[in-house]
């Protein structure tokens, strides 16, 4: 484990990514206690405030403290994105590896169908699912998870097939190992690494998709502190203060960059042969 961490922190991507994601996770876990103000505390006299000593990141159109709202929103935005990615990956991995395991006609049928679903842009698919279920954070989560499944299924299948062809799996079959052992001990450890890498990078897409849904009014609803929603609301007050627009945008971008970097770092660190 320490060896793995050392390898992760050795690459610039792994180091930067771990740092950013670590900070974000601290904000997610401790955010509530770190906020100087309540996310909904309005101060009529301090509207559109520029960054200052009292309000590090300034205040918004109702005089709410932006830093407090961002920290508060970290929980909903990042946790939702993580959950959505995890569910989507799990579903996709089960579908993909299952398809690879079945092989033959069943595999072809499943994968062609998955390809077909991939013809619908994932944002559109998420929009459809949300409109079917109704606009809310929970439904947006489900929508993103569903939108991720086809591509994750494709990726897990190709990884599983590549591992399946390896000689160590052949050796296990020739030895007469049961399929449980082959799947759990021979294949899974080798399949999981690339999927974890892909999943980490996906979290950044989930953050962005999530924010986009909120922006389009189909995710979190006001007065939630979801970052995408904050950007959407800020657009109307652009000419009064650009800070209210800039900070949530930066938060989204930073989170996405962090998970992107971490994913690239993990790719190197999880390779057993380097």
């Amino acid at each position: 484990m320490t060896d793995f961490l050392r390898r992760l922190l050795r690459t610039p991507q792994g180091f930067l990514g771990s740092l950013i994601v670590g900070l974000i996770l601290i904000a997610v876990v401790l955010g509530q206690w770190l906020t100087p103000y309540g996310p909904a505390d309005m101060q009529a006299l301090a509207r559109y405030g520029a960054p200052s000593v009292e309000h590090w990141l300034g205040t918004d159109q109702y005089g709410r403290d932006i830093l407090s709202r961002l920290l508060n929103g970290a929980r909903s935005t990042v946790v939702m994105a993580l959950l959505a990615t995890f569910i989507g990956t799990l579903g996709g991995a089960v579908l993909g590896t299952g398809s690879a395991y079945l092989g033959g006609r069943a595999d072809e049928f499943i994968m062609r169908t998955v390809d077909a679903v991939m013809a619908i842009p994932s944002l559109l698919l998420a929009l459809l699912v949300v409109s079917l279920l109704g606009s809310s954070s929970a439904n947006a989560l489900l929508a993103i998870a569903i939108a991720f499944m086809p591509s994750m299924a494709r990726i897990s299948r190709s990884v599983a097939l590549a591992v399946r062809k390896q000689d160590y799996v052949s050796a296990a079959i020739a030895r007469g190992e049961g399929s449980t052992y082959i799947i759990l001990r021979e294949m899974l450890p080798n399949v999981i690494a690339p999927i974890v890498v892909e999943m980490t990078i996906r979290v950044s897409f989930a953050v962005m998709l999530f924010a986009t849904l909120s922006f389009l009014g189909l995710g979190a609803q006001p007065p939630a502190t979801d970052w995408g929603l904050m950007v959407s609301e800020a657009r109307q007050y652009l000419h009064r203060s650009y800070w209210i627009l800039l900070w949530p945008s930066a938060a989204i971008a930073l989170t996405a960059i962090g998970f992107n970097l971490l994913g690239d770092g993990l790719r190197d660190a999880l390779n057993p042969r380097t």
Binding site: S204, M208, L209, A211, T212, F215, L216, G228, V231, S232, A234, R235, L238, H239, Y242, L245, L246, S249, I252, A253, L254, T255, A256, I257, N260, L261
Partner: peptide
């Protein structure tokens, strides 16, 4: 890295803010 981390609505809003407004 910056590019893949900016959702379209953020880029769009920022671009409108800077270039147009």
């Amino acid at each position: 890295y910056i590019g893949v981390s900016l959702p379209e609505f953020v880029t769009a809003t920022l671009a409108v803010m800077l270039v147009a407004d």
